[in-house]
């Protein structure tokens, strides 16, 4: 179990709901490891009978095949995406006693001090790490991304302890420190204001078009029969629009967005193109 991915535990409420809806008991099997590619792979390679579905993230579904060829899938064409659950946007936070009030001021400081401004995050090639590089790319800065692997806690600890200048992470982990006045959110990596921090400016309104979130989807193997897919889609949408799931997701900082079918596929394709761009940028840098 990776502390970094709280939504993996949302499988349990979904399973309970699908029991109500489909009338079958769903067995949740956690397959950790390999950056979640083991679990995702097990679903993608399963018999397309509608009995095996899984929870995948944009990292395991789109990013991993780019950095780890030979997994058995490479694009959104290689599996069925049933429904999107939602996004977890990244946030950029600094210490409350830091001199920067806005993202623009922070970027200006980073431009003037290339490779001297450091932003911690919860791991190399996680969404916050890639979002940091994407910001570097769009803003022409050289912020050093410092990956910690302790599940997000250590990245924030490094900021609180004054070991880095900023941290890029997720809302729920940061919220307590924000409320206590220890850290300040300079930007949310999103287009629209974030319910968790309604007062924080977004990257887009600050003039930087960097919006990479971590997103979760219900996936199934490729080649489901149309009626099976229809039934599965209906049931999944019902499961993720139940009040108890919505309150679970909101409490954990997710922006729910239950789109299905071609809309999901289009989003995935677009997202993978962006991931490919960022990776190319990182590789050319190093």
């Amino acid at each position: 179990m990776r502390p970094a991915a709280p939504l993996t535990r949302s499988a349990a409420p979904i399973a309970r709901n699908s029991k109500k809806i489909l009338g079958v008991t769903t067995v949740v099997e956690n397959r950790p490891g390999g950056s979640a590619t083991i679990g995702t792979g097990a679903v993608i390679r399963a018999r397309p009978d509608g009995y095996t579905i899984g929870l995948g993230s944009n990292s395991s579904m789109l990013l991993q095949p780019l950095v780890n060829p030979g997994l058995g899938w490479s694009t959104a064409e290689d599996f069925t995406s049933v429904v999107k659950l939602g996004d977890l946007p990244c946030v950029l936070a600094v210490r409350a006693d830091a001199p920067w009030r806005t993202l623009a001021e922070f970027i200006e400081h980073a431009r003037a001090n290339p490779r001297r401004v450091r932003a911690s995050n919860s791991g190399l090639r996680t969404t916050p790490d890639l979002a940091t590089h994407q910001l570097n790319r769009k803003a022409g800065t050289q912020i050093v991304s410092v990956p910690f692997t302790g599940g997000g806690g250590e990245a924030l600890l490094a900021l609180l302890g004054g070991r880095v200048e900023a941290t890029v992470g997720f809302g729920p982990t940061t919220k307590g420190q924000v409320e206590a006045g220890k850290v300040r959110i300079l930007a949310v990596f999103a287009r629209e204001r974030y319910e968790l921090f309604p007062d924080a400016a977004t990257t887009v309104e600050s003039g930087f078009d960097v919006t990479l979130p971590t997103s979760y989807y219900v996936i199934a193997p490729k080649g489901l029969a149309p009626e099976v897919l229809a039934r599965l889609t209906e049931a999944s949408v019902q499961a993720v629009t139940q009040p108890d799931f919505i309150s679970f997701a909101k409490a954990n900082g997710y922006i729910l967005n239950p789109i299905t079918g071609d809309a999901v596929k289009a989003e995935l394709t677009e997202m993978q193109a962006e991931l490919r761009e960022v990776l190319a940028f990182v590789q050319q840098r190093s």
Partner: peptide, 15 residues
């Protein structure tokens, strides 16, 4: 007091 999960158990409790 920090609200930071350093172990899987802590992460579960925070969730």
């Amino acid at each position: 007091s920090l609200g930071l999960p350093f172990t899987p158990i802590a992460a579960l409790m925070i969730s």
